[in-house]
Design a protein around this nucleic acid. Structure first.
Lengths: 139, 139
DNA sequence: CGGTGAAATAAGAATGAGTCTCATTTTCAT
DNA sequence: ATGAAAATGAGACTCATTCTTATTTCACCG
């Protein structure tokens, strides 16, 4: 439960106040190891309004405490951001399963692209689409 | 106008019939060098129904004749897929401008990740987010 | 060529994700 | 405790996308 404390602390420092909605969203994210969609959070917290879910996620994202993962068309998913950790995802095109991976040489290559570009690159995302081992045998 | 012929041909081979809607969508995509959103296509082709725009794009995507580009939350954009060509995009977080880039060592790194993974990787996307030179000076 | 049945189409209703509004409740600095 | 300011929940709203359906068009056949 380290991340939830850090998240609350950072939000307080940033001038936001702690309410019931914020606490519940943070608790939920703290307990998840993988990405959860905004609407699933909304569903799992019936006493929290949709707007509060989205507002909290937005604040957390701005402070780099969560990372938004966008997978093909569907609703955006969020996962907590642990310091010093950086990964991307593979998504199974059949079952939708999301599996994280990290690769240093990929990161280096991306960093080099950013150096050479006219853009001032702030962040990046990589998504690999494919078939996961579980789905591989099926029709 | 090579791509439009190839696209029509492949659609015919795949068993789809040629109608006015399909022709117009293909013409429009053939004339664009950069990604266009589905709704912009719909707007620019007033005589074509929305459903036909989406259906045609879906068929073209299935046959790998167009590539769908998903940029943060907004509506998905489509660009034609020329053989032997493969690029990714940088998006300006201020003005939304989309700029293509390609990088061989990035592709190699991604390919290596795919080799080592349990997933059978089919495709991938890379998106760099940043500030474009035009927006860089502004407040 | 003209008929025919299947596929394509246009219009717009329906869905679903995400945003906005606003009246009410909480928070927190005093 | 108190009161100004922020957070909240309910639901209306927007916008992209999908679905439905009646109609039109296509490609094949004689």
């Amino acid at each position: 439960m380290r991340w939830s404390e850090r998240a609350s602390g950072r939000l307080n420092e940033a001038g936001f106040r702690a309410g019931a909605a914020r606490r519940q969203v943070i608790e939920l994210l703290a307990g998840e190891h993988c990405a959860v969609t905004a609407l699933e959070i909304d569903r799992r917290l019936p006493s929290v309004g949709r707007a509060s879910v989205y507002r909290t996620l937005e604040q957390l994202e701005q402070l780099d405490l969560v990372h938004r993962v966008e997978v093909g068309g569907e609703s955006a998913a969020y996962e907590r951001n642990d310091p010093g950790e950086h990964h991307h995802h593979m998504v199974c095109v059949r079952c939708g399963r999301l599996v994280p991976f990290e690769d240093a040489s990929l990161e280096r290559a991306i960093h080099r692209v950013g150096e050479g570009a006219e853009f001032e690159v702030i962040s990046h995302d990589v998504l690999l689409r494919g078939v996961c081992p579980r789905c591989h045998g099926d029709g």
